[in-house]
């Protein structure tokens, strides 16, 4: 039963390879994108850390992007 399913009427190699290739490459792109995003989020948070606290608070209030990233970074740490 399982063998029959894997064999796919003799075409198993072609079918499984094509599904596998799609999955693997989609995952690689996902992984790389996620890694880059995390990297930039962290770098931005680090640069903000360097600023004096008053300044940082003012930025966080004025920019939603900054405040949301600070929030997500704080959750992690």
């Amino acid at each position: 039963m399982i063998n029959e399913f894997l064999n796919m009427g003799g075409y198993g190699f072609y079918i499984w390879t094509s599904f596998l290739i799609v999955t693997v490459f989609c995952f690689i792109l996902y992984y790389k994108t996620k890694k880059t995003l995390k990297k930039y989020e962290k770098e931005l948070a680090q640069e903000l850390e360097k600023l004096p606290i008053e300044h940082r608070k003012r930025i966080a209030r004025s920019s939603k992007v900054i405040s949301s990233i600070l929030a997500s970074q704080n959750k992690l740490s």
């Binding site: 792109l29 996902y30 994108t33 996620k34 880059t36 995003l37 930039y40 989020e41 770098e43 931005l44 640069e47 903000l48 930025i59 004025s62 920019s63 992007v65 900054i66 990233i69």
Partner: peptide, 23 residues
Amino acid sequence: ALIFLMKYKTEIIKIKKRNIKRL
């Protein structure tokens, strides 16, 4: 859509990071 949104967010963060001095 997922990849696009993540990449788009990265681009926004890049811009913010570049402009951080001006804020």
